[in-house]
Computed example of a mutant assay.
Amino acid sequence: MGLDSGEGSGVEGGWRAHPDAVDDRTDLPPVEPGRVVGLGAICDLRPQRPGETDSQSFSVSEFVTLEDGRRVTLHQDRGFTIGWNSTGDPRTGAAPAGETRDSITQNVLNVVLPDDEDDTEDHPWSWLADLARARGLNVTEQDLRGLPYEVVLTDKVTQWLAIA
């Protein structure tokens, strides 16, 4: 079950699009309505840039899951980069020592959660609800607060971790 196609979203507060993000536009098309039953983030590998063999970049997007199983992308404008140090050999294409599903999952959560110390919210619920409504989904901030949140690592990320 893949994410629907579409462009990314804008920036709120102090958040900025990661340089490797897929897109940071806000013109995602409406989708067929459905009941929102989940929320999550998906993490994928970004292609290596020429000359940057000492790090690996990841793209992160957030989505809602509908009752019929569809995942509807809300934004695709986040990401992070892991650099190699003495514990990793970038020439092997392997993940640096110590990188695990849990550490990647934590990095994903770090990039989707507010980074402003003054922010009283543990997640940008209002913004995500606005993005979902812009896609044609009838959901409120309160609705999203009560939903399970999952972090999905793509097969490419899982294979990258397995090489270590």
Results as ranks from 00 to 15, higher is better:
E121D: 12
D20R: 12
W125P: 09
R46L: 13
L109Y: 08
Y149M: 11
D27G: 07
D20S: 11
T105S: 13
L74F: 09
E32H: 13
R145P: 00
F58E: 05
P47L: 06
D115A: 13
D102G: 15
A94C: 09
T100D: 00
R145T: 12
W84Q: 14
T53Y: 15
S86E: 07
R145L: 11
I42D: 10
T87L: 15
W127N: 02
E62Y: 00
T154E: 02
T81M: 06
D24N: 00
G34K: 02
S126V: 01
R145S: 10
L113S: 14
R91P: 11
W127S: 10
D89Q: 04
T81H: 06
V108Y: 02
P90Q: 13
L109K: 08
Q48R: 15
P47N: 09
T140S: 12
T154Y: 08
S103Y: 13
E150L: 07
D116F: 01
H123A: 07
R70F: 07
E32K: 12
P47Q: 05
A41P: 04
S61F: 02
L153E: 04
R25C: 04
A97F: 02
E67S: 15
R49P: 00
T81R: 11
D102A: 11
T81G: 05
D54Y: 09
P124N: 00
L45A: 03
G93K: 11
N107K: 00
V151S: 10
T87E: 07
E99S: 03
R101A: 10
Q142P: 04
P33N: 03
R91N: 13
S57C: 11
D23L: 01
E150V: 10
D23K: 08
T140L: 14
G34Y: 10
I104T: 05
P114K: 03
T73N: 09
E117K: 03
T73Y: 00
G83H: 12
P148L: 02
W84M: 15
D89H: 12
E141F: 07
T92S: 13
E117V: 06
H123M: 11
V64D: 03
E32G: 03
V108L: 01
G136H: 08
V36R: 00
T87I: 15
T100Q: 02
A21F: 00
S103K: 07
G79C: 04
I82C: 01
L39H: 14
V108A: 04
D130F: 08
D44T: 01
V151C: 06
L113C: 14
V139Y: 08
S57W: 12
E99L: 05
N107L: 11
E121W: 01
P124L: 04
R145C: 01
V64P: 08
